[in-house]
Design a protein around this nucleic acid. Sequence first.
DNA 1: CCGGGAATGGCAACTTCTTGCCGGGATTGG
DNA 2: CCAATCCCGGCAAGAAGTTGCCATTCCCGG
Lengths: 212, 212
Amino acid sequence: MSLDHVPVLHGDEELFSRTAHLFATATEITCAARDLNTWAATRPRPRDARPASMPRLRKLYRPEVLLNPSMAQHLRATAARGAEVRITQDDINETIIIDRRLAILAGDVVDGRRGYGIVTEPAVVQNVASLFDAAWRSGTDLAVYDAQHAELRALAPRVLELLASGCKDETAARTLGLGVRTYRRRVAELMAVLGADSRFQAGARARDLGLI
Amino acid sequence: MSLDHVPVLHGDEELFSRTAHLFATATEITCAARDLNTWAATRPRPRDARPASMPRLRKLYRPEVLLNPSMAQHLRATAARGAEVRITQDDINETIIIDRRLAILAGDVVDGRRGYGIVTEPAVVQNVASLFDAAWRSGTDLAVYDAQHAELRALAPRVLELLASGCKDETAARTLGLGVRTYRRRVAELMAVLGADSRFQAGARARDLGLI
DNA sequence: CCGGGAATGGCAACTTCTTGCCGGGATTGG
DNA sequence: CCAATCCCGGCAAGAAGTTGCCATTCCCGG
């Protein structure tokens, strides 16, 4: 197996222009992402007046995407159009798998363009698909997760703002009219959703997601 | 004085195309910024083969820009080309003042484009210029500041990485081969440079500056 | 009206961070 | 070589954040 032959596309435009025909003919698309910067945001919907050969769409995201109202709304709309959307706590890699025969792996951003590795080697694609399946099984359906965390998201923007302002928990809690214990509960939940072990990490991630 | 007539340009391209002639004929330009995303980064140098009518250039930045090696290098190069560069702890607004007659005030980012307010009203421009002067006087010359904080910047990237990894101070210190006390000194210095009161804020700001 | 479940917030024990203090080792200038 | 200085890192007191526990309250379905 030659490991040195993985074509890499640079930037979203190149990705879209070179892979559009694959999406057009696909019957099963699975998609995993840590945020919406990668796939969906820049490609709102390929062509939503094409319900004839609607492929099976499975989308797997990390919970923090739901903290961004517009991202959350986008996902709900996607689900409403027939896609299966799940949320997982797993530390997933950003991946698209088409018909279990081709995988697109998002890489690092270089010079403002993200690299996308195109994998066709069947054995590798199968492995990637297995990893996806495992994460998929561990995921929660969007609607369920959504309901469970409704009250968190209601408060999250203000909590984030207060955290970003640098004030102490005591101050922030009073500002929100909450007890310190409850405020800290919200912060802890927020950090769990962000997958952050420390407040520093939470701050970085929140900024990353454009939540502050 | 009518407050409702401040022309606003949207996005860097529009700003550059509409104000290029102003920069070309200016004899004194002052520039304040919290980071290099606003002015300098996207406009490396207007035309550096034009030393004939070199205007007086004063640039004032917040210390955290120096944490980014490429930003720091850019500033040093700017200073080497004859600009006066200072560092201030003040919470400055992003501003350009041309010949003390026109001020360009950076505003918020909307739809990915930053708004730039163009102010020509003499009284307002004078006020803005006074604010700038005050901050300028409180600033430290780049070379001096640079020397004072050399050893911090050497360690900063690794400290930031460890903070971003979410590990405890104990772990991070040992990873760096430092005592916990020293590691915490570095973190405190870093937070001071970032102007952060909490680690959450520091994380957000670090991410903001692209330091992690 | 009553019992169950969920959210709240006070309490408290612990952990983690923050900082001043200070002695010891390295560096530098005389 | 000595002294001044700087940086390091242990110590410790105190502040801030983390979490389990639990009584109280509210809401809801029975």
